[in-house]
Amino acid sequence: MTTATATRGDERIAHVGLLRRQLVKPEFGALVGALVIFVFFWTQSSVFVSSAGVANWLDAASIPFGIMAVPVAMLMIGGHFDLSAGVQVATAGLATGIMTTYWGLNVYASLVVSLLLMLAIGFVNGYLVTRTGLPSFIITLGMFLGLQGVNIGATKQVTNKVTVDNLNLVPGYQFLKDVVGSTITIGGGQFPIAILWWVLFTAIGSWVLLKTRFGNWTFATGGDPNASKNVGVPTNRTTIALFMITSAMAWFVGNTLILRSGSLQAQFGVGTELIFIVAAVIGGCLLTGGYGSVIGASVGALIFGMTQQGIVYAGWDSDWFKLFVGVMLLLAVLANQFVRRYAEQSRR
């Protein structure tokens, strides 16, 4: 990431070099960082680049981090956080699990109800943020704590355990598991299909952000909500939609997790919301909104996955993992700050 700060010429030079054009892209730092980390762990362990090794760190990167980093990055570009994104993943999976295994509801119907529930949660987050004008940090912190309580409380009440299981005994399970939870064997490595979903969602998210009106509104809402309102951007609707997209993705991820193994812990997700944000920030999203990239956020998640598994392959004590994440986060924030100054530099 330090190479991103290397050379800068006179801004008045009309011809913009390829390096400089890449340099101002938000995902540039993350791509360089990912490359460095990849090469680094490659030199540390040959298993890291074996088929099984790659499958392993791609899996760690894709679910829940990679897929959730996509909407979390969009939300952050739109100027907001969702601290409840992690526990929402669990809420979605637990809801489906309880409805099917304990209440005997059809699995498809359960998925629909669970989706509606998640959209409602996203709407409440977005509505409260736009309505009260309070920081999304506080609103979603409340949602985070609340859902954490609901996840454990409701699960215990219904199942008398802190986990929902036996989803694999429900009719229709196998087909759904194939859709989201199967694996593809390439060269001895078992690649979960979630990786493909991750790539797909990253592509869609990036397309929406860069090529649609909604994407333009997202950048504008995060960049300057007042100015956006003055030119007719529906900033409140955009914000609420972004929160609902986050919750919808939590629905996908939560249900993928419970469909993959047939069970889900009620405490799942606590703490992951911060990793989603870390991935987005490493990927070049500004905490203050208005700038960032979905591809960058996915690369951020990739860095996370590679580091998490790479440490194990390198034979190090994995207790040190979070130190790496912390250092990378700080480096990323410093790089972002530089980019922002560069982008906002006035030529008065």
Partner: peptide, 24 residues
């Protein structure tokens, strides 16, 4: 054209130009 100009500094000129009235 108000004093704040209703432009978003981090966005490109063309994105600002059509902000709120994007051609599709």
């Amino acid at each position: 054209v108000f004093q704040d100009l209703a432009v978003v500094p981090l966005m490109s000129i063309w994105r600002n130009f059509f902000l709120g009235s994007e051609p599709t």
